[in-house]
Amino acid sequence: MAYTIEVEGLTKAFGDTRVLEGLDLQVDAGEVFALLGPNGAGKTTTVRILTTLLAPDGGTARVAGHDVVNDPNAVRAAISLTAQEAAVDGILTGAENLRMMARLRGVKPGVADELLDRFDLADAADRRVDSYSGGMRRRLDLAMSLVVRPQVLFLDEPTTGLDPRSRRAVWDAVQTLASEGVTVLLTTQYLEEADRLAQRIAVIDGGRVIAQGTAAELKARVASETLEIHFADKPAQRVPVNAPDDVRRALEQHPDAERIELHRPSLDDVFFALTGASSEIAEPVR
């Protein structure tokens, strides 16, 4: 069976900076697929190529059966994009933004009212979008992507910088769409988000996929548990442990430990194990 998104050996450089170095992806129809990676891993570049905004240097990419380079209009007819920066018109009102999208997509403008209700924006419908909060802009942005139900929806870091309520609304919308059979490709730095929404996850770093699978498969690739050692005067450390002996050894190495916690592996652990990031706990992800 043909994949809904099929990417082979994608490369892209900006000047001397090589962003994608042979990226491969296959996404099935109706699947929610997450691209997980740190800043600069090539997530946004991949999305921009798949949504016809950027031409690749090499490799091929097909979306909904159409080549993104040779047949961009057929791709555009099948997709919607919610990019990192909210793609809304600040000078227009929320309702005007949605009606504009409806006209451009050739559907009845009445869809605007439904979407305003669904995304909890009815009260702000006639206010200029410039006066919206970040969360409201993001919800409107997503609503504008759903004026017609796309075959494939691209979400580039859809919840970055959002308050919990708006994040919730985005997650609910993604789950609803997935249940309606829309294929979703989302990028995220939040491991929790990928774990929660996506059936399959590709971890990307340095412009290529370094691991791929379900959340459970990825977790199985690291140690069964992780020991987190907290200190009074320096950052906490994470140590993979498989047996009680490992715990004993770790504590002997760190006699100044103040407090310890034992964790089941999270996607964070997978991520750190795969990308070789330092064992020190990174800044909280949100």
Binding site: T52, L53, A77, E85, A86, A87, V88, G90, M101, L104
Partner: peptide, 13 residues
């Protein structure tokens, strides 16, 4: 400079 232009570019128009 506004993000909405990218949205227009991804439409089949």
């Amino acid at each position: 400079t506004t993000g909405v232009i990218d949205r227009f570019r991804t439409l089949p128009i």
